[in-house]
């Protein structure tokens, strides 16, 4: 399904994989996460605390929000008072209210569930964060707020990010390097480094560069758009 792919992510670097549906982005990400084993080839992971955020919040319905956020810490063997303190601090940073933490996930709105999922990911202080279209189903206001929260966490802890997305604007806003994939067999057809630091990219910068990016012949071919 995938062919001749060499992909490496440096510590602290943010890499975005963009490409049409079915080109094997998710497969590649699942390989990196260790959720799939490759038939051929090798996955070498020297990150010690990689974790993943999915498109759906995937909170455990039988756990209160606070325990959901602390899930990764519990898996690591931290005791309850410590992991709850960390989870509570992060939840408040992510914009959850104190009384939300006692609720079950089904009592939270979709936006609050996404915030909880983001807090759960940051709780383990990952050195590699895998994002599987994590922001695809959110409204633009919430999206931009979560982008901000992600940027702040990255600035504080310097974790690497490998994200897949359909959304070129999202890639241009968050990534240091964009890899374009094409399908059947899945392969990387273009690589595009962004020199502008993520913190300095304004809305206008993102709009302008997305417009320019989408006109490049390699990108158009990968997505099956007619040449312009």
């Amino acid at each position: 399904m995938l062919e001749d792919i060499h992909l490496s992510v440096a510590p602290g670097e943010a890499v975005a994989l963009v490409g049409p549906s079915g080109c094997g982005k998710s497969t590649l990400l699942n390989l990196a996460a260790g959720l799939l084993d490759p038939w051929e080839g090798k996955v070498h992971n020297s990150f010690t605390r990689s974790t993943m955020m999915f498109q759906q919040p995937r909170l455990l319905p039988w756990k209160r929000t606070l325990d959901n956020i602390a899930l990764g810490l519990k898996a690591r063997g931290e005791n309850a008072p410590r992991r709850h303190a960390t989870a509570r601090r992060l939840a408040l940073e992510m914009g959850l209210a104190d009384e939300d933490l006692d609720k079950y996930p089904s009592a939270l709105s979709g936006g609050m569930q996404s915030r909880a999922a983001l807090a759960r990911v940051f709780a383990v202080e990952p050195d590699l964060l895998l994002l599987d279209e994590a922001f695809a189903a959110l409204d633009i206001g919430l999206k931009s707020e979560l982008y901000g929260l992600l940027a702040r966490q990255r600035a504080a802890h310097g974790c690497a990010v490998l994200m897949i997305t359909h959304d070129l604007m999202e890639a241009l806003r968050l990534a240091d390097r964009i890899l374009v994939m094409a399908g059947s067999p899945g392969r990387i057809v273009a690589s595009h480094a962004i020199d502008e630091p993520a913190a300095r990219r304004s809305e206008d910068w993102v709009f302008a560069h997305t417009a320019r990016f989408i006109r490049e012949p390699g990108i158009r071919a990968a997505f099956g758009l007619p040449p312009c």
Partner: peptide
């Protein structure tokens, strides 16, 4: 999806049982 979550967050086997499977 919850099995994937359990793997992504590296839940040890006993936690998969008590926190995911049993409930």
């Amino acid at each position: 999806q919850l099995r994937e979550l359990a793997r992504a967050f590296r839940l040890p086997p006993w936690m998969r049982l008590t926190d995911v499977i049993l409930p």
